[in-house]
Design a protein around this nucleic acid. Sequence first.
RNA 1: GCGCUUGUGGUGAAACUGGUAUACACGCUGUCUUCAGGAGGCAGUGCCCAAAAGCAUGGGGGUUCGAGUCCCCCCAAGCGCACCA
Length: 924
Amino acid sequence: MAEYNFREIEKKWQKFWDEKKIYKTANYSPKPKYYILDMFPYPSGAGLHVGHPLGYIATDIVTRYKTLKGFNVLHPMGFDSFGLPAEQYAIQTGQHPAKTTEQNIRRYKEQLLNMGFSYDWDREVQTSSPDYYKWTQWIFLQLFGSWYNKKTDRAESIGTLIEIFEQSGNRNVYAACDEDTPEINADQWKMMDEAGKQKLLLKYRLTYQAETTVNWCPALGTVLANDEVRDGLSVRGGHPVIRKSMLQWIMRITAYADRLLSGLDRIDWPEPLKEMQRNWIGKSFGCIVRFKLAGSDLEMVVFTTRVDTIFGVTFMTIAPEHERIREFTAPGQWKSVEAYINSVRDKSERERMSEVKTITGVFTGSYVIHPFTGKKIPIWAADYVLAAYGTGMVMGVPGSDTRDFAFAKHFNLPVIPVQTGDHTDISRPDFDASKGTMINSSFIDGLPVEAAIKKATEKVEELGFGKSKINYRIRDAVFSRQRYWGEPFPIYYVENIPCPLDEEKLPLLLPEVDAYLPTESGEPPLGRARDWKYLGKFPYELNTMPGWAGSSWYLFRYMDAHNEKEFCSKDAQQYWENVDLYIGGSEHATGHLLYSRFWTKFLFDRGYITVDEPFKKLINQGMIQSRSNFVYRIKGTNRFVSYNLKDDYDTQQLHVDISLVDNDILNIEGFRKWNPEYARSEFILEGDRYYCGAEIEKMSKSLFNVVNPDHVIEKYGVDTMRLYEMFLGPIEQSKPWNIHGIDGVSKFLKKFWRLYHDDSGVFAVSDEEPGENELKILHKTIKKAEEDIRNFSFNTSVSLFMICVNELQSLKCNKRKILEPLALIISPYAPHISEEIWRLLGNKESIFNSAYPVYEPAYVVEDTFEYPVSVNGKLRAKIILSLDLPEDEIRKSVLELDAIQKWLEGKPPRKLIFVRGKIINIVI
RNA sequence: GCGCUUGUGGUGAAACUGGUAUACACGCUGUCUUCAGGAGGCAGUGCCCAAAAGCAUGGGGGUUCGAGUCCCCCCAAGCGCACCA
């Protein structure tokens, strides 16, 4: 008896799709376009695990559905192939990262092809390929050749800035630039030598060099971005990170802070992710206030969001790392301040993090004059002030700010309450600094906080020692890495001045090196490359670009992947615009997803593209976790005790490979073979079984809980795996991988197959006309399947198919006119079996090129005459009424119904509750 | 501490704008063909009960004829940010 043979079917159709290039997409079509993108993977050595395909299956379903609906769909795939693991492997083995990367990509591709995804592989991109990184370098050059004009609120060519300089210097330039940019006039500009001019321009370029304190990771030998560091450790590898000053390439993303923020309102992204980006950008409205130093012309400038509390200032604070701290220190105090600076400097991020609660600081011996009261206010240095936020200096208001309060208490500084509330301990939750009215505050006394801020801001502006200001938390992004396996910068140096390489010379190929470690003198690995000089004499940049460089614009390369003249042709970009649907993990919230928005806005400003957001709709697929299993060894022995008996012994919990466990029952023989250490183990069983413990954890090799999709595919087939991953639950939700339910899905596909075959397994469908009942089942399914795909509710779709197939089976329906559309509806989810059935039904074209059936509303309309009804929301009955009757008639017929009449106890209904034309409730 | 999200059977989970809560699947129980092969069919399965009635969507209030869904207060879990002035 013939059965559903997935092995044969899947191989057959994958080969066919590949050979006939079924999934090739044209750049021009009379059909409407739809662009669906997956976050491309980094091809690691471990291959794909079952978590990877989750998002890919979802995009594939939407792709197939949209294609059936008559869209021209772009659905490409590629590889984010520059990165640390390949390089680390290279350091260990000496093997060129390009080679490892190539092997890994081959394996990934093989796995992806096995899953029957409809990618147009002709458009594949690899960020580490010179054809690709040529354009990453090109975009870098465009950034280098641009500045941000805040008057026009967009990036412009650096040439327009030079023109302005020549005419009127930089006095009237309103640009995103370095804080320390000196003011010059046109004559001064013209008098400057080339080096001086370039130095000045560098302060305006959208990518620039600066000496900055960076996160230096000694173990990785590189600098990390803020989002690559967590708790003072590198996200990758968990090595300690320290603060170090280095000359770095930096992206002026702060120029786009406001547009990155406002753009969020126009894109369809998950709210939590938008919120993460909002917090990261961290816009806050406040005020800059200048305090004159006592006995000096110097001024201390602070940023505050609560200028209304200025009458409560009892001390000033400056970050110990602040570059101007010496100016604010009395000569006699310098020694103790310097000692304090040193003690703070050597602490790593981690140490500072864990010492959040300890209060340290030192008096600088200097004072400022309070602008309103004229009182002398002492200046302190304290590490609770961040050098990088605001001006690196704050005014201490212990009456309203809990941190200032804690500091004042610790050093016994006075507290002046400036707003109503109990000030004995303002860190208690019943004190809310954002509420109340002002006291002890001269002209703002009695005003509520909000009004007080407004009035105080006006006053300081009027008196000229302050100005309202919008401050951002986001900082410019460090863009260089001291690594080998990344894009080389198209930059060479003439007397230490960075010069852009001519665009014609791109790509600047990554040179060969003899080892992938920094040089002995501490230069990055490119320092090992021979003749790494432009024209043989001007040294090239030794840093390479970070991982996010290539991924910040890849969506555009897919549109025109083989273009040798442009990163993407205007025509192709205008046709595809931007991504309609993007699916990937939320871990890229403040990395890739922010940087790609930044580069897109930049390319838009410079007229290279017509969209200023890369991804219209974003869905975060949840993480697939894993269920780890444990065995319990009695301490100091080689005896293992079954889960429910373990409390009787003193045991140690050990991870066991989940492939040795079925339904929490341990395969004892397998376990003995797994590790020689356990070959002679003894077991204390429950009955004749050893039960393991279990816990949900991250999927990781080291926890022995990784599930390789290859095994699942081998056992059940790809279509079953695809359906099952969707059936598992909503796509956005993180959930543990659990194989136990897969039999249900597997059964469903077998039933589906059997619908088209008779009892002896021979393909057989009837050409009989379907009855209304069968049509109803079909059209209900079509309708619901469309709704589900529109809502990305794939799990309910799978249930729906099961119901449909069960119903048809119980009707013994084998009619072509029902079964042919059914194969089409299921095809986005289970393409192989559907294609096979489609061909058995005699179709010549691939199911991928067919048209999704249209449902007939007539067959979907529910029974309109039978309603559930309750009386006073309690009793229920089904009554039969006509929709067309006027309300009075309905009321009459309700009273005539015996059952209802009994409940009504003869009283006429006071009110009939209608919902969508149906009586739902009767109120007495 | 702040922000966001989520709490429904033994398990994964359904439930459209408030309208018969627990669809579908797993698991479990019984059973049939009879097989020891991860096969197929049928019936049962929220809780308490012999049954009827009753009670059930983390807990407590509220709005409503009617609340898993809306509002308020708690509790728990997950994620993100974290001295941001």
